[in-house]
């Protein structure tokens, strides 16, 4: 093997490496000039058949050449990598603001979001979430709640009745029959809320809907007082409207509570009627077989639509009931 041949291999390799335009071309050049089948590799393998003396001289020549080739390769590699980083990647820039996800945006109905939020608030405090049928027995919706037939309180709520009228079956006007069902079937202490859909024969307008949602709460335990009712309502109001909200109770009338009160919240600079509440009327406890000597309790009820409208500034009930996707999608899943 001639020293000049080796020098040619080295210079060929250096030329090839230096003329590579990118890392791919360099890879091809590397395989040709320093790969397993390159002249230098073959020569290196040929050393084995030489005499010891030749091995020393030839080995030195080949070793030097390999080092030179490796040096040239390293130089070319780092130059091309620098080129890639400085130029080629920049040429590959894409408009990453192009719309990525073409999937439709979905979401929960804001009433569901409110229901979930309210349920989570109360579950965290140990209340269970009770539900009941929307078509309900009139006895559970009225009589057991101390609203006898022919009492003016029945006409306070425009009830949807089912045919035949003698069945007394109605679309529940409140979720209170769920309270009655719970008291009739469970032993106190009772800590529940009952969110759900309710019905009153009101014309649909910007603030009323014949189909709407309520959440009611009921607590029956030993030693429950109106102060406890206030405590729970204050907490609940803060959870719904923010830490700095204040509440006020005003005397009112509901057949199923005595004393009764309206709950107002001071939100966005004004008092807003939020719901009704009171101490469970002992007559109702008696109907449900709860010993009034031992137990007392309170109940409250709020409109979920009303809470939503106040808190989120929803102006028109139609938006809540019409199912226009543009409305629902604003709320995501409420996280």
């Amino acid at each position: 093997m001639h020293r000049d041949d080796v020098a040619t291999w080295v210079s060929d390799a250096q030329k090839a490496f230096n003329s590579a335009k990118d890392l791919n071309q360099l890879k091809t050049a590397r395989i040709a000039h320093s790969g397993d089948k390159s002249p230098i590799a073959l020569a290196s393998r040929g050393l084995a058949s030489l005499t010891p003396q030749e091995k020393i001289t030839q080995g030195k020549i080949i070793g030097d050449a390999k080092s030179a080739i490796a040096l040239a390769l390293a130089g070319a590699t780092s130059a091309l990598e620098a080129l890639r980083d400085s130029k080629i990647l920049l040429e590959e820039i894409l408009d990453v603001t192009l719309p990525s996800n073409r999937a439709h945006k979905g979401g929960l109905h804001p009433i569901s979001i409110m229901k979930n939020e309210i349920s989570d608030f109360f579950i965290e405090q140990g209340y269970s979430v009770e539900e009941g049928p929307e078509m309900e027995s009139g006895w559970l919706n009225f009589d057991a709640l101390n609203i006898p037939a022919d009492h003016p309180a029945r006409t306070m709520q425009d009830t949807f009745f089912l045919e035949p009228l003698e069945s007394g079956i109605v679309l529940r006007t409140q979720t209170s029959p769920v309270q009655i069902r719970t008291m009739l079937t469970c032993e106190p202490p009772i800590y529940i809320i009952s969110p759900g859909r309710t019905f009153r024969a009101d014309e649909l307008d910007s603030t009323h809907s014949p189909v709407f949602h309520q959440v009611e709460g009921l607590v029956i335990d030993r030693g429950i007082t109106m102060a406890h009712l206030k405590g729970v309502l204050d907490n609940f109001a803060r959870a719904m409207f923010g830490e700095d909200v204040t509440t006020r109770l005003r005397p009112s009338y509901f057949p199923f509570t005595e004393p009764s009160a309206e709950v107002d919240v001071f939100f966005s600079g004004r008092w807003i009627e939020w719901g009704g509440c009171g101490m469970v009327n002992p007559k109702v406890l008696q109907t449900c077989g709860i010993d009034t000597e031992i137990f007392s309790g309170f109940a409250f009820g709020m409109g979920i639509e009303r809470t939503l409208m106040v808190r989120h500034g929803v102006q028109d009930m139609h938006d809540i009931v019409e199912g226009d996707l543009r409305f629902t999608r604003q709320f995501g899943v409420g996280l």
Binding site: I123, Q125, Y127, S128, H228, K230, G231, D234, R248
Partner: peptide, 19 residues
């Protein structure tokens, strides 16, 4: 006056969860 009634949380019941 209802405003003279204090605001107190009731005893905490046992834990609950969704069904």
């Amino acid at each position: 006056g209802y405003e003279s009634i204090p605001s107190i949380l009731p005893p905490r019941p046992k834990q609950a969860s969704l069904t």
